[in-house]
Deep mutational scan, measured.
Amino acid sequence: DESNKPILLPNESQSFERSVQLLDQIPSYDTHKIAVLYVGEGQSNSELAILSNEHGSYRYTEFLTGLGRLIELKDCQPDKVYLGGLDVCGEDGQFTYCWHDDIMQAVFHIATLMPTKDVDKHRCDKKRHLGNDFVSIVYNDSGEDFKLGTIKGQFNFVHVIVTPLDYECNLVSLQCRKDMEGLVDTSVAKIVSDRNLPFVARQMALHANMASQVHHSRSNPTDIYPSKWIARLRHIKRLRQRICEEAAYSNPSLPLVHPPSHSKAPAQTPAEPTPGYEVGQRKRLISSVEDFTE
């Protein structure tokens, strides 16, 4: 099969070098950035008060330690540790928490760990991170309901609301924008112990962030949302095809390698009803078989 044979790379090609550099910018793992907010007593309706908090309760602090690993920003190499735009020179604080497994990295933009500057009256330095995160974990210690939209931002799609209760338990629920209701189930609340709260809140936030990324990708319907490693695979396959075309153009005697095509017509299947918005969006999480067989 010609399409699977190794090909020689061009010795000097600026377009090839640019493509390789672009490939280096696509990590081999999925990345997520999640905002974390603490809401104190009497702050449920005040964005400024929430963003001005420099610490929270003892249970909130224990919750943070379970979310991930504490890292010092100045020691991080952005090409190895995903920071979601946090500055490593102290502009966004000294520490944050991050978490990773074999296929993804997540960083938490924690408002109480970011510096509260006197010259920044409206807390814009914090909002440029927190307001651009799709998902926020809100530790609501106010005793009042927290409403979506209290923290203004164009991309605040989903809130994971943590409400501490007695007996070391917590109520965990989801809020989302109306255009996200087909992807996020907000109907079920959970009672979770303090011990298990970081794991549950983190998983709910990661799932909500993946759904938000799919939702946000609708602005470019021709580019369905893939995982990062599938995006790398697609980029490599496009690069291979372009090299083959350039080689055939410079030397017409060489065969032009095309991806294999299936001449056999697909079997006719009964027509199915058109899937609704929710089903269609969830299918976009699934990769096409052509990603692996071309």
Rank of each mutant, 00 (worst) to 15 (best):
S15T: 08
D141A: 02
S193D: 04
P221S: 06
E272D: 11
M180D: 01
L86A: 15
A265L: 08
L174S: 03
D87A: 06
G42L: 02
L174W: 02
K121D: 14
N156T: 08
A265D: 11
N45H: 06
I103V: 08
D185G: 08
A211M: 11
P78M: 12
K127C: 04
P255T: 08
A211D: 00
R218G: 08
L86Y: 13
Y277A: 13
G153I: 03
Q241E: 14
N4L: 05
E41S: 05
C169K: 02
A189Y: 10
D185V: 02
V184D: 02
S19W: 15
H216G: 04
S28T: 13
K228E: 11
F199S: 03
E17S: 08
R123D: 11
T274S: 10
N170E: 00
E91C: 08
H159P: 00
G131N: 15
D79P: 08
L171D: 02
K121N: 14
V214K: 01
L83Q: 15
F108I: 01
S44K: 02
R238Y: 14
P164S: 00
K74T: 12
R195D: 12
A106G: 03
L83G: 15
R232N: 11
P115Y: 03
D102W: 04
K126C: 04
E278H: 10
V172K: 00
V188C: 12
L22F: 11
K283W: 05
H216W: 14
P6R: 05
I224R: 06
D125Y: 13
C89T: 14
N53H: 01
D1N: 12
Y38S: 00
E91G: 13
H262A: 14
P255A: 08
G84M: 06
H32T: 04
G149H: 08
V107F: 14
D194F: 00
C76S: 08
V172A: 00
P6S: 10
V158L: 02
Q25Y: 06
Y58K: 07
S52P: 02
A231G: 14
A271N: 10
K80V: 05
C244G: 13
E41N: 04
D118F: 11
S227A: 07
S261K: 11
N53M: 01
A189M: 14
M204N: 01
E12S: 06
T293C: 10
H55G: 15
N156W: 02
S173E: 14
Q21W: 05
R18Y: 10
Q213S: 06
V39D: 00
P10I: 13
A208N: 02
Q213T: 11
S46A: 05
L9D: 12
P10M: 13
Q281F: 08
G276Q: 13
Y167D: 06
N132K: 14
S44E: 07
Q154M: 13
V20N: 06
Y97N: 03
T150R: 02
S173M: 11
T112V: 01
P78L: 14
R232M: 08
D101I: 00
K190D: 02
F292I: 15
L64C: 09
L48H: 13
D179L: 02
L197Q: 00
G40I: 00
R123M: 15
E168N: 08
D120N: 14
G40M: 02
Q43H: 02
F199Y: 02
H215A: 11
T61C: 06
P226E: 10
C124F: 15
Q203C: 07
A201H: 00
L64D: 01
P270M: 11
L183H: 09
H109R: 03
